[in-house]
Simulated assay, not measured.
Amino acid sequence: MKARVSRSVLTLLLGTLLGASTFDAMADETAASTAPDAMFADTWHFTAGGGVLSLPKYPGASDRKFEPIPLLGATYGRYFIGTVPDVSAPLGLGAYLYRDSHWQVAAMLSYDFIQPRDQSDDARLQGLGDIPRTAHAGIFGSYTVGWFTARGSVFTDILGKHEGTVATLGLEGKYQPSDRLSLSAGPGLTWGSSQYNRTFYGVDQGQSISSGLPAYAPGSGVASFNVSVKADYRISRQWGVGAAVVATELRGDVGASPIVEKKTQVTYGVFSSYRF
């Protein structure tokens, strides 16, 4: 099975499946004091696990596929590497610039774990060419008070692969009916620069001739809105499992792209992780 998902979609899916819940217990161990320095104990923590997604073959596709996602990460004090649940990156390296009981802000570098698009993924992509892997640099942050969390991120292509800049914003409300079970839901959106939207949803003159699709050049703007529902269950101090459903609506110039067959996309996912 070939693994091909655009960065914004993978970010959304991992964010919904994991949120910050995978590392919540790590934070609990250092949150006895609300002082920022107390959140960065010089101790190693590791997370290993995996998930399976059922999702459209590409953003806008009408056909579906299954996608396995590995979850491997490590933290030491303010530094982290591997899967970064807070920003939903499968492969990243960075550091928290600030963190307390409500706020967290971090900067990081990430690399596409999987190729964003291969034209062999779907017949509608024939003639559009592949979109290669690239590296991204950016910043992310969140604010949590009680049951409410707001998250945001901005990342940009730093290897000149024409993948532009992507920004995300999400709101989440959490309800915990028991010590082990937590339920959460909320809306979100993804904004793409004109370069990002043209690479993933545009059709230039050469691609139009090769694919038979009309030429199309989307501008910058909100690419999608989404609503997610998630359940997490902590089996033990180390083990956790979860499931999520994400409904996404492609909007504006992105939704009007000739590549898009279906504007409303629904994704289902399950995961399990072990923390040590």
Score class of each variant (00 low, 15 high):
Ala3Trp: 06
Val5Trp: 05
Arg7Ala: 08
Gly15Gln: 13
Thr16Ser: 15
Leu18His: 09
Thr22Arg: 00
Thr22His: 00
Phe23Arg: 12
Phe23Gly: 01
Ala25Asp: 10
Ala25Met: 04
Ala25Gln: 11
Ala27Gln: 07
Glu29Pro: 00
Ser33Met: 06
Ala35Trp: 03
Ala41Cys: 03
Ala41Met: 14
Asp42His: 13
Phe46Trp: 15
Gly49Met: 11
Gly51Ala: 14
Tyr58Gln: 10
Ala61Ser: 15
Lys65Trp: 05
Phe66Leu: 13
Glu67Tyr: 14
Pro70Ala: 09
Leu71Thr: 02
Gly73Gln: 02
Ala74Glu: 10
Ala74Pro: 02
Thr75Asn: 10
Tyr79Glu: 09
Ile81Tyr: 05
Gly82Asn: 06
Val87Cys: 03
Ser88Asp: 04
Ala89Val: 05
Gly92Val: 01
Gly92Ser: 15
Leu93Arg: 06
Leu93Pro: 03
His102Gly: 07
Trp103Glu: 06
Gln104Lys: 08
Leu109Val: 14
Leu109Asp: 06
Ser110Glu: 13
Tyr111Lys: 06
Asp112Glu: 15
Phe113Asn: 01
Pro116Thr: 14
Arg117Lys: 09
Gln119Glu: 14
Gln126Pro: 00
Ile131Pro: 00
Ile131Trp: 01
Pro132His: 14
Arg133Asn: 09
Ala135Asn: 10
His136Met: 12
Phe140Glu: 02
Phe140Tyr: 11
Ser142Ile: 02
Thr149Leu: 09
Thr149Tyr: 04
Ala150Lys: 02
Arg151Gln: 14
Gly152Cys: 07
Ser153Thr: 12
Phe155Tyr: 13
Phe155Arg: 09
Thr156Lys: 03
Ile158Trp: 06
Leu159Gln: 12
Gly160Phe: 11
Lys161Val: 04
His162Tyr: 03
Gly164Thr: 05
Thr165Val: 11
Val166Leu: 13
Leu171Thr: 01
Gly173Phe: 12
Tyr175Asp: 00
Gln176Cys: 06
Ser178Ala: 15
Asp179Gly: 15
Arg180Ile: 02
Ser184Tyr: 08
Ala185Tyr: 04
Ala185Gly: 15
Gly186Arg: 09
Pro187Ser: 10
Leu189Gly: 02
Leu189Lys: 05
Thr190Arg: 10
Thr190Ser: 14
Ser193Val: 11
Ser193Asp: 13
Gln195Met: 09
Thr199Gln: 09
Tyr201Trp: 05
Tyr201Val: 01
Gly202Gln: 07
Asp204Gln: 09
Gly206Pro: 01
Gln207Leu: 03
Ser210Lys: 11
Pro214Ile: 06
Ala215Cys: 04
Tyr216Gly: 04
Ala217Asp: 12
Ala217Tyr: 14
Pro218Cys: 02
Ser220Met: 03
Ser220Asn: 12
Val222Pro: 00
Val222Thr: 13
Phe225Thr: 13
Phe225His: 09
Val227Ser: 08
Val229Asp: 07
Asp232Cys: 04
Ser236Thr: 15
Arg237Asp: 15
Gln238Ile: 02
Gly242Met: 11
Ala243Gly: 14
Ala244Cys: 05
Ala244Ile: 01
Val245Gln: 05
Val246His: 06
Thr248His: 08
Asp253Thr: 01
Asp253Asn: 11
Asp253Pro: 01
Val254Cys: 12
Val254Tyr: 10
Val254Pro: 08
Gly255Met: 10
Gly255Pro: 00
Ala256Pro: 01
Ser257Glu: 03
Ile259Met: 08
Ile259Lys: 13
Val260Gly: 11
Glu261Trp: 06
Lys263Glu: 03
Val266Phe: 07
Gly269Val: 10
Gly269Cys: 08
Ser272Asp: 02
Arg275Gln: 12
Phe276Cys: 01
